[in-house]
Amino acid sequence: MSDRKPPPEPPLPRGPEVTRRDLLTGRVAGLMLDRLQGEEPEALPAPPLIRLTVNRVSRELRVPAHRTLAEALRVNLGLTGTKIGCDHGECGACTVLLDGLPVYSCLTLAHDADGRSVETIEGLASSDALHPLQQAFLTYDAFQCGFCTPGMIMALKALLDRRGTPDAEEVRQAVSGNLCRCGNYLHVIAAGLAAARSLGDGG
């Protein structure tokens, strides 16, 4: 194994505030320790309680005003099925249904879900059976790495809830706000159509 040593650097004029020695001698370590014992780092007043229904279960949360619904679901409620791919409304991985409509939870404030109903991928299957969309995604191999899958399925769920028998173009449009970098769009569209058919058949 090579001894990985970078070439020597000329000494750096040092900043007055924190020095390496400070770090070593514990001036900073002391600061760090204080913080280890400290509480949540919120300078703002304790945030008000919000109540939302997540997958038909009522939940209460106390999160700062700037916490997004995506983070609240993942971090505060442990529902990590909702993914964050971009955090900017540019990928669709965080798609959830808010009062039945697909939205990007990364651009939705948790506080704006107060009093509303949120559906996530975790709420889709019943205890004993997959939702037809989930089944169709398996049958048609509608994903590869699967990171876009929860968002894709939720976007399609909203479509199928609204429109029983969509055509291929409507299915395509419904997932037009969801990126799949693995590029499995055609299988996603096939799965969406198949799920619609099986729902139509009363299955």
Partner: peptide
């Protein structure tokens, strides 16, 4: 404008 989700928001 944007995507279905953005239009809902």
């Amino acid at each position: 404008v944007g995507s279905p989700q953005l239009r809902n928001m």
